[in-house]
Design a protein around this nucleic acid. Structure first.
Lengths: 143, 143
DNA sequence: TAAAATACTACTAAATTAGTAGGAATATAG
DNA sequence: CTATATTCCTACTAATTTAGTAGTATTTTA
């Protein structure tokens, strides 16, 4: 149950964008430098969260990426699922039809509890919450 | 954040053993047949939970595996971690030294929340709880 | 028109997962 | 003592996923 670097990198990138919300677009290159992530790899990750509708892009010089919505309107669950995939524990939790024993399967019940516990964390916080926490507690997400 | 089939199969196998606690040893072959898992693969999975000290083995005819302790004394977290690995989200959650920015990293804080949410589910239930729930709600873990 | 950026697509290397395979060791029953 | 049933151990393999690299096309601005 490790979180992939894809998700970790992607989360940091969108946090940079959340922090810069309201300002000029941020370039991949700049974020990649700050976070010490491969430029080209980050390009693909940001493209994933763009496909999910969470960021918008601006092409050409002085282009870059901006958050598509107010950071207070973007739940962490949206970001996480875009990067890590929709399935949080096992397929049958969201799609009962994935297994015919779903309705009376005890392990499914367990995985659903775990699924909901994770969702509880991600559904109840937005990018804005993380940005504020960062400022308030003098934390960072730049390394 | 999908759970591997290793963990799903392993959890089902140990649940069979929990259910049979107090009786004769169960053979891999029998469990594998019931759960429709490859015999040889399950052998390896059970060997993992044996290494973790959760089950004991009996060799020779009429041998098999038995739970090493009372099912009420085996937390789901022990089983899960044996199968899925100790790390629940990211290394730095358990090992701060894994990253020098740990102390003021906002994403680590998020991953720790998620880590603890998962642990909350697994630490507070034992194999016995699942066995009882299975009986009480007429559920199963045999398919 | 040059330069700065994203967009797209294909490839690759490494790691992990999910097995398969075969035989060694051990215990039991007859 | 021997056949048999079982775990034990180790090595191999195939498929999938992850983490990139690489190159070029497209768009926009100055």
């Amino acid at each position: 149950m490790k979180i992939s670097t894809r998700t970790r990198y992607g989360m940091r990138a969108i946090l940079e964008l959340a922090c810069a919300y309201g300002s000029e677009p941020l370039q991949i290159k700049l974020i990649a430098d700050r976070q010490k992530i491969s430029n080209k790899y980050l390009e693909q990750l940001v493209s994933i969260i763009k496909s999910a509708g969470l960021v918008r892009s601006v092409r050409g010089p002085h282009g870059g990426y901006v958050l598509a919505r107010d950071p207070a309107e973007i739940k962490l669950s949206e970001v996480f699922r875009a990067l890590e995939g929709q399935t949080l524990t096992v397929d049958c939790v969201d799609h009962q039809e994935a297994c015919e024993s779903s309705s009376d399967c005890i392990t499914r019940k367990l995985w659903k509890q775990m699924n909901d516990a994770i969702l509880g964390v991600l559904e109840n916080q937005t990018l804005q919450d993380l940005v504020e926490m960062t400022e308030k507690e003098k934390m960072n997400y730049q390394i």
